[in-house]
């Protein structure tokens, strides 16, 4: 089994009396999609936020790309190769889709402090950015203000930005949220191809998408991982059935 690229070790986070993360230990290995599922409020996003550096854990440790990253802030973690998307789309609304992706491209080539040359005329920025948009089927929307994009397009734009970071791992927080079935199907296909570039830790409510994509699934309830395994194992796990999947069956969107 290959070495995991990302590991959380007994991650714990409390908000007042609520334990949002209770001893969360999970890992992400090269080439895989590891889905994190659970009911609303189970603490899935809190795990993502702690890994990305937005929320400081009360206990536990995170290793990424061979080092402990507990002391690094969000910027440093992103630079190390953690690319994250948000549960609620977070883009620069006044920028075009293209400019949003260019921001990530220029961050990767580490030359932000250039003051004179127009960025939109730099082929080294525009061309890769366009290629990433194309991959997310957004190339004909490149000039549209991100704030004017449809909900689904903004979700896709976030993934294009993440892609532009050439990350070593993706953290995707409900990328399918609010998408119609057609767009979800397209996105499933795109994410399927993405795992070859970097493994994906995927938080998602759409169970069809999860079971179509995931190599492994961890189920989190009340901040605690109650089961972890292949999709088949999870599907047949009784505790998971009781706590979460219930009798919703295969099409059980939560």
């Amino acid at each position: 089994m290959p070495e995991p690229i990302l590991q959380t070790e007994a991650l714990t986070k409390r908000f007042g009396a609520v334990v949002a993360s209770d001893d969360v230990t999970l890992d992400l290995r090269p080439g895989e999609i590891h889905a994190l599922i659970g009911p609303n409020g189970a603490g899935k996003s809190t795990v993502i936020k702690q890994i990305a550096g937005e929320v400081r854990p009360d206990g536990g440790s995170i290793r990424f790309a061979g080092r402990t990253i507990d002391r690094l802030d969000m910027v440093a973690r992103a630079r190390l190769g953690l690319a994250r998307t948000f549960q609620v789309s977070s883009v620069a609304p006044e920028f075009s889709a293209l400019q949003n992706v260019m921001l990530a491209v220029q961050s990767v080539d580490r030359r932000i402090y250039r003051f004179f040359r127009p960025a939109l005329r730099e082929a080294v920025l525009v061309e890769p950015a366009m290629a990433h948009l194309e991959r997310l089927l957004l190339d004909d929307r490149a000039e549209v203000r991100a704030g004017d994009l449809s909900h689904g397009e903004r979700r896709a734009l976030e993934i294009a930005i993440a892609l532009a970071l050439k990350p070593r791992a993706f953290l995707l927080d409900e990328p399918m949220a609010g998408m119609g079935p057609e767009n979800t199907a397209k996105l499933v296909e795109i994410l399927d191809g993405l795992r070859a570039e970097a493994p994906i830790l995927l938080v998602e409510h759409d169970m069809d998408a999860v079971f179509a994509l995931a190599d492994r699934i961890s189920v989190i309830v009340y901040g605690r991982i109650i089961a972890s395994g292949t999709p088949q194992e999870i599907r047949s796990n009784e505790e998971v059935q009781r706590a979460y999947l219930g009798d919703e069956g295969d099409d059980g969107a939560a």
Binding site: V75, A83, R84, F86, P93, L103
Partner: peptide
């Protein structure tokens, strides 16, 4: 100015 969180997420301080 538009979205500092977005900037930090792409690795720019």
């Amino acid at each position: 100015r538009q979205n500092a969180q977005r900037l930090a997420t792409v690795g720019i301080s």
